[in-house]
Amino acid sequence: MRVNCVGAIIMDAAGRLLLVKRGHPPGMGLWSVPGGRLEAGESDEAGLRREVLEETGLRVEVGALAGLVERPGPGGVTYVIRDYLATVTGGTAAAGDDAAELRWCAPGDLARLPLTEGLLDALTGWGVLPA
């Protein structure tokens, strides 16, 4: 079974990436970009705005698709994750919903964090982060 998911690549004016620490499986305890599963009938844009607001308290404008990854999940599930560039338009940053913590990270700090599998390679490969 394939499960459609979205993720938000949000950078601040200093070039730092917004990451959330997953509070629940899959990826519990690992850092990733905010996002999650789409609800039935939900567009990528609507789902991304909802997930970012639930996890970070921030409202965003959804930009271009940065890339797509497929990740195995439990019970033969495949997560199909479309990551979009996004820009903060309002709200107050605070971890919520499935996020245990959130932080803004400089690209050079990412290698020192326990990230979800393949995140750093994907962001670098898509040209979002410097190689």
Rank of each mutant, 00 (worst) to 15 (best):
A94Q: 15
R112M: 07
T78P: 03
A14R: 15
D83F: 15
A111H: 14
E70I: 08
T87I: 05
A99I: 04
P72L: 11
W104T: 04
L18E: 00
R103N: 00
V20N: 02
L119S: 05
P114K: 08
V52T: 04
P107N: 11
V6C: 10
E51G: 01
A64S: 13
G67P: 07
L65P: 00
A111R: 15
D109Q: 13
L110G: 13
G63N: 04
G7F: 06
L17M: 06
R49C: 03
S43P: 03
D97T: 02
V3K: 11
G73E: 09
H24W: 13
M11V: 05
G29E: 12
W31M: 02
V60Q: 01
K21H: 05
S32H: 15
H24M: 14
A106R: 12
P26F: 09
E61Y: 07
G27Y: 15
A64W: 09
T87H: 06
G47F: 06
L85G: 07
A95V: 01
V52Q: 01
V77M: 14
A8S: 10
L17K: 05
L48P: 02
G96P: 01
V80T: 12
L17Q: 02
P25F: 10
G23W: 07
P74N: 06
G73H: 10
T78Y: 14
R22E: 01
R71N: 00
D12H: 02
Y84S: 00
L129I: 07
W31G: 00
L18M: 09
K21D: 03
R22N: 10
L53V: 04
W126P: 01
V128I: 09
V3Y: 07
L119K: 13
G7C: 09
T87L: 05
G75F: 09
G125T: 06
R59A: 08
A40I: 08
E70M: 13
E39S: 06
G76C: 13
P34C: 03
E55S: 03
G57V: 00
R49S: 03
D97P: 01
L68A: 06
T124D: 00
G36L: 05
G15K: 11
R103W: 00
V69F: 05
G41P: 14
G108N: 10
G47D: 10
S32P: 04
M28T: 06
G75T: 05
L38S: 11
G41A: 10
